[in-house]
Each structure stands twice: as structure tokens, then as C-alpha cells.
């Protein structure tokens, strides 16, 4: 019996032999990255002309990473009610933006500005060469908030201007 087992082993027939790397490529990618890559949260787009939507577009195709992150804000409470992303980039970039959309949802706009790239990187266990992905996600959040505020300012100015004109 033992001999049979040994012969089988030598031929690579045992189950242990057929699964030499139980972790596969997760030697390079943390399971959280794989999870967000395989099942990305909040993929999609809002209408960027909607006054309640802020859009952040960061990165460049030549660098291999472009991230678009959008937030939908309740204009009365300043709370982010929903978020969407689309990303051109490696698995880590996709995962970083997916995490970013999850983290901003339900938070007040001012609070999301404190989300740090290091937190995203830690959550995804990004290796040093992939840290720029998390930085890009942080930039995308900031850009989206900035875009929303600028839009608000413009519409407020417009309504204010309208009111003065009426008076």
C-alpha cells in the first residue's frame, strides 16, 4: 500500500502533487485585490452634467492607469449617497478604485477627504510597485469632491445672479 502510494506520488498523481501552489498568483495579489477585481463594486457612470454629481478623472493612458470616480451628493446634508467608478489599469488599480467607492458611500463629503492612500494600500496589501494605484484612488476621491464643489459654486452663483437680477 505504501509502495503504491509512493509510486503514485512519483508520477504526480496524488492530489497534493496536482496542487503545488495552493495560492496561485495570490503570491502577487492579496485576496482582497482578487475579490475586488473579480467582483468590482459600483462599476458604472452617473450623468456628469447632473449638478449633484462630482466627477474625478485622474491618471493617463500612457502611464497605464486612468481612474474615473464619481460621487452623488445629497445637496442638503452634504452626504455622499452613491458612488461609481470606471478604471483602465492593472488589477490593483481596479481594486483600489472599487475600495474607494465603497469607502466614500454614506460618508460626509468632508470626511472622505481624510481617506489616505496608505489605508487603501494596507487594506489591499499592495506591494511597493503598486502603491501608485492607491495614490491614484486618493487623488480620484479628491478630484471628485473638488468637481462637485466647483459645480455647486457655479450653480449657486448662477442662482444668486438670477435673484439679484430679479430684485
Amino acid at each position: 500500500m505504501m509502495l503504491k502510494q509512493a509510486a503514485k506520488k512519483a508520477l504526480g498523481l496524488t492530489s497534493r502533487q496536482s496542487t503545488p501552489w495552493p495560492v496561485g498568483i495570490s503570491r502577487f495579489y492579496h485576496e482582497n485585490v482578487i475579490d475586488h477585481y473579480d467582483n468590482p463594486r459600483n462599476v458604472g457612470s452617473f450623468d456628469k452634467n447632473d449638478p449633484n454629481v462630482g466627477t474625478g478623472l485622474v491618471g493617463a493612458p500612457a502611464c497605464g492607469d486612468v481612474m474615473k470616480l464619481q460621487i452623488k451628493v445629497d445637496d442638503k446634508t452634504g452626504q455622499i449617497v452613491d458612488a461609481r467608478f470606471k478604471t483602465f489599469g492593472c488589477g490593483s488599480a481596479i481594486a483600489s478604485s472599487s475600495v474607494a467607492t465603497e469607502w466614500v458611500k454614506g460618508k460626509a463629503m468632508e470626511d472622505v477627504l481624510t481617506i489616505k492612500n496608505t489605508e487603501i494600500a494596507k487594506h489591499l496589501s499592495l506591494p511597493p510597485v503598486k502603491l501608485h494605484c492607491s495614490m491614484l484612488a486618493e487623488d480620484a476621491i479628491k478630484a471628485a469632491v473638488k468637481d462637485y464643489k466647483e459645480k455647486r459654486l457655479k450653480t449657486n452663483d448662477a442662482t444668486a445672479a438670477g435673484e439679484t437680477a430679479h430684485a
Partner: peptide
């Protein structure tokens, strides 16, 4: 028994 983990 035969399956393997690949890229998660």
C-alpha cells in the same frame, strides 16, 4: 481533488 487555485 484535481482542481487548482489560479489567480484567486
Amino acid at each position: 481533488d484535481e482542481s487548482i487555485m489560479m489567480k484567486g
